[in-house]
Design a protein around this nucleic acid. Structure first.
Lengths: 108, 108
DNA sequence: ACGGTATTTCTAGAATATTCGAAATAGTAT
DNA sequence: ATACTATTTCGAATATTCTAGAAATACCGT
């Protein structure tokens, strides 16, 4: 994980339509959902849906598997976990809580 | 937490400059950083920085406290936690893993 | 009051993202 | 081959976001 990939993933999920798609896939779990199912549930034009799916796949948040003429989409949980870990990395580094406001702490 | 707030937070962090600002504040921890410090470390023009900070504060990811003529900025961890929880909500709902690929599981 | 430092607002150009109809492609079934 | 279904690409209009200089505001020290 790096800054650019993390930003890309976050930006993809930062759009309401794509967030809805992603959450739908998170709910669906391992079996995933095909594109027509997503379309039916979210009521988005096919070309718009294709545009957003391309983004999610490009960011590595969703994977696709061709099954005949349908495409099964699945949320890629590890990718999101990587982003979250990255966001929390080095949290409070250089901040020693023992040195902060000792009086205030003693008072509580 | 709801779809719109989550999308807003994710979109804010989906920009490289804002992601850098946010991570800087996550590292800084509870003491936070004032705006000039952020500016010095990230080398961003003041007006650009103000623009991005407004976004992060608006999304609730960062809080600001005026201290004399400086403004101390702090990452709001709870907000991000809320977004992450929202993203994982209802994961694999309606998917019963006991019913899936029993042969494959027996084989491993 | 004045000078200096910190930060924000204004502005407008440039860049990027979003939408979706129509046309194209791919795969299945008859 | 033809018809049908699933999905993608193209293209162009529209909308949103980003950037940063210049001007404005706010607050402190003298």
């Amino acid at each position: 994980m790096n800054r650019k990939i993390a930003a890309r993933c976050l930006a993809e999920l930062g759009n309401l339509t794509r967030l809805d798609i992603y959450r739908l896939l998170v709910r669906a779990g391992p079996p995933g959902l095909n594109i027509t199912d997503i379309q039916t549930r979210l009521d988005v034009p096919a070309s718009t849906l294709a545009f957003h799916l391309r983004g999610l796949v490009g960011a590595g948040l969703v994977t696709q598997e061709k099954k005949g003429r349908t495409v099964i989409c699945r949320a890629q949980y590890e990718r999101m976990d990587g982003v979250v870990t990255f966001l929390r990395e080095h949290c409070c580094e250089g901040f020693d809580s023992d040195l902060v406001a000792p009086l205030a702490r003693r008072a509580s």
